[in-house]
């Protein structure tokens, strides 16, 4: 039997909904764990990828410097990078802020907002600095595969993951291709 595959996952500017959907594969998780181990993932709370993993699943788009760094880290450490969910593919709901300037977003939240005290735009160096817009992943790194959906259904995720782990074609059959 071939050695087990390694999978890493993360959520950037997303809602963790894609990860919830991943957990929704239910008992197939056991089947998956037969074939692969999870490296860095919010599921097991491992914070850093050690070495190289076979498959990286990235949920969420890019909204700040931190998300860019994590994505770059994934690209460097994953043989195959998969963009998971609408936010990762298009920017998704967070990218609705792209209609407004960053200035007006921050002023609305931290200066003009109802009930704001000590009004100022947060400038602590520990806070990740926001990008001017929210971007999809494939504009910053090379993405190998895409799984659309908000979130992608458990069946869609299982289809792609099991295909990648076993070396089949990860293209979704029509019934599993959804953007909503």
């Amino acid at each position: 039997m071939a050695s087990k595959r390694k999978i890493a996952t993360c959520s950037l500017a997303g809602c963790f909904g894609c990860h919830m959907s991943l957990l929704d594969i239910d008992e197939r998780l056991l089947e998956l764990l037969e074939l692969a181990d999870f490296d860095r993932s919010p599921i097991n709370d491992i914070k850093e990828i050690k070495g190289i993993v076979d498959i990286g699943l990235v949920e969420g788009g890019l909204c700040n410097a931190e998300t860019v760094r994590v994505l770059q880290h994934f690209r460097e450490h994953c043989r195959v990078l998969v963009s998971v969910g609408e936010c990762a593919l298009t920017g998704g709901i967070p990218s609705m802020r792209n209609h407004l300037s960053l200035k007006s977003c921050l002023e609305e939240s931290y200066i003009r907002g109802v009930g704001v005290e000590n009004a100022h735009i947060p400038d602590d160096p520990e806070l990740p600095l926001l990008l001017d817009k929210v971007y999809p992943l494939h504009e910053v790194v090379k993405v190998d595969y895409y799984v659309p959906g908000c979130p992608p259904s458990a069946d869609a995720l299982w289809h792609v993951l099991s295909a990648l782990v076993t070396g089949r074609d990860p293209h979704l059959p029509p019934a599993l291709l959804k953007y909503d």
Binding site: T90, I93, E139, V143, H171, D180
Partner: peptide
């Protein structure tokens, strides 16, 4: 924004993309 669009499921653009099997993103937004 398909996830937030009231037309989702009745949208010909979305349905046509499904029919064509558009799973990958080619271009910048």
């Amino acid at each position: 924004y398909c996830p937030a669009c009231e037309k989702s499921g009745n949208c010909r653009l979305q349905a046509t993309a499904y029919a064509l099997g558009l799973q990958d993103s080619h271009f910048p937004q």
